[in-house]
Design a protein around this nucleic acid. Structure first.
Length: 475
RNA sequence: GGCCCUAUCGUCUAGCCUGGUCCAGGACGGAGGCUUUUCAAGCCUUAAACCCGGGUUCGAAUCCCGGUAGGGUCACCA
């Protein structure tokens, strides 16, 4: 148990994450939820997901579903899921009680905007100083005078955020409120409400620093687009463990040089004491790096399973393992039967996230040669360090012979390599291998020629070499 | 503007509480190299920071004060 938790020993920890379903889960929200989760699990407590769906105009049920799905993906599990709208009767009861004992009052108003009520319920503020000990920020002190008699409900049946939020926290027995720093200045008024309504001791607060954009401002959907949405990373083939690890690294560290932690490991080492006080820039390069770390740890089967969703249709295998016929595919079969897809190791070497796979196969992409016949300028066949057409031609002819001699049934990368290697070494690897590789792929950047030949198969490989020879011979 | 929060390499951060071991450590990204037919990957090397000014002290990134800068928040949204 960490020391923050010890302060409250005797009370079982109850936390909550309370998003409003007005959009997809935000990366900042995800991290807040994660810290709540880690703190709770570490200390043996209970965590509630409370969907704050009280703003009928902006809320949509599909957003609530999206949020729940995003947490499923992340692997963050809640003990309970509540909908705030279900608690309206409770809110009303507390509102009536507050009015009855004079701590709130109905106030006649001059509507300033369209849709505003001429009568609202305000909190009777007696302007005291509020001091609280934030678990991350330390002691925070506010004078509440400037809050005035703030509005807590539009009517008895329409409480606003500060009120319903606090009531629900009280009712759920929340002990620790861990939330984004943007709520820090909301805290005094919520404490005021809490103390007016409940005898229960106030919860402890922990305000975690914001996630910032490159410009160091609060990252927002409006300004920064889809990259703030957790769903975007799911869609682009990031691994949830990597994403979680990255989120945890924003504003928290283990106190040593370790960086890689899965969810389980995080729950073991997490501590609010190690949470940073200042905001953290959301750095996608680092995310990609984390993702690659996790990608490399996947075994072949896992990798193939996850990658296949992103493979181009014409490379996919059917559920039964049956090969799909496709006239566009030029080589011998690289599709295998699900466990033995020849091209997977190449993909694994190239990508940081599965979402990068389609790009590899697009025309001009590094692996597009498996589908497209190479289309290249003749000069591309010549190695820059020795751009002599006759040399290239000679080597291509020789390679053609050597390749022909390889048994078609044993046409593997290793066998191909051993068939060609000594010749390449003897005659200059660049002089020999460059034209061969370009003959196979037509591209300056691609995998090595042995793998390419393996993937293309004997017939297609030879055909491409002959094409290159033809190409060079025609002046 | 009021109130509140924050301040170590470009970025994420260690160190700060319990001053010396810090001419400040790690990671991402950058640069260079190795490997290599190419591009990645991998490995190695390297540049890069204590916001400023005072004070306390033999000694301050670390303690105190004052600035400055950045951010958050000021709804009948959440």
């Amino acid at each position: 148990m960490d020391s923050q938790a010890k302060i409250y020993s005797g009370t079982k920890i109850v936390t909550r994450f309370a998003p409003s379903p007005t959009g997809f889960l935000h990366v900042g929200g995800a991290r807040t939820a994660l810290f709540n989760y880690l703190f709770t699990k570490k200390n043996g407590g209970k965590i509630i997901l409370r969907i704050e769906d009280t703003d009928a105009e902006r809320n949509k049920p599909e957003y609530a579903e999206g949020i729940v799905k995003a947490f499923d993906w992340l692997g963050i599990k809640f003990n309970q899921i509540h909908k705030q709208s279900e608690n309206f009767p409770v809110h009303r009861k507390y509102l009536e009680k507050l009015i009855a004992n004079g701590k709130a009052f109905v106030s006649k108003e001059e509507p300033r905007e369209e849709g505003q009520r001429s009568e609202v319920i305000r909190f009777k503020n007696d302007n005291k100083d509020i001091i609280f000990e934030d678990l991350i920020k330390g002691e925070v002190k506010f004078n509440t005078t400037e809050l005035g008699d703030f509005v807590i409900a539009k009517s008895l049946d329409e409480p606003i955020f500060h009120f319903s939020n606090v009531i629900d926290d009280i009712n759920s027995g929340i002990t620790h409120i861990i939330r984004g720093e943007e709520h820090l200045s909301n805290t005094p008024r919520q404490i005021l409400i809490w103390e007016a309504v409940s005898e229960a001791p106030r919860p402890s607060y922990a305000h975690i620093p914001l996630i910032l954009s490159e410009q160091k401002e609060k990252i927002s959907k409006r300004k920064h687009g889809e990259i703030v949405s957790v769903e975007y990373y799911q869609r682009n083939g990031y691994l949830p463990e990597a994403f979680v690890n990255f989120l945890a690294s924003l504003g928290w560290n283990a106190g040593d040089d370790r960086e890689i932690f899965n969810l389980q490991e995080l729950t073991e080492v997490f501590s609010l004491e190690k949470v940073q006080k200042a905001g953290a820039v959301f750095n996608q390069d680092k995310l990609r790096w984390f993702n690659r770390q996790y990608l490399m740890r996947l075994n072949d089967e896992e990798f193939i399973g996850k990658a296949s969703k992103f493979m181009p249709e014409w490379l996919r295998v059917s559920n039964t393992g049956e090969q799909l016929p496709d006239s566009r595919f030029r080589g011998n079969d690289i599709r295998g039967n699900g466990n033995n897809i020849k091209i997977m190791p190449l993909i694994r070497d190239k990508i940081h996230a599965f979402g990068e796979i389609p790009m590899l196969f697009e025309t001009g992409g590094e692996l597009s040669f498996v589908r497209d016949l190479p289309d290249y300028a003749k000069e591309t066949l010549l190695w820059k360090k020795n751009p002599d057409p006759k040399t290239a031609l000679r080597h291509l002819n020789e390679i053609s012979k050597l390749l022909s001699a390889v048994d078609e049934n044993k046409f593997t990368t290793d066998n191909i390599k051993s068939a060609l290697w000594s010749y390449a070494e003897a005659n200059g690897k660049g002089d020999v291998l460059w034209p061969v590789r370009v003959a196979f792929t037509g591209q300056e950047k691609s995998p090595d020629p042995f793998v390419c030949a393996f993937i293309l198969g004997k017939n297609e490989s030879l055909s491409r070499i002959h094409k290159a020879i033809e190409n060079l011979s025609n002046q």
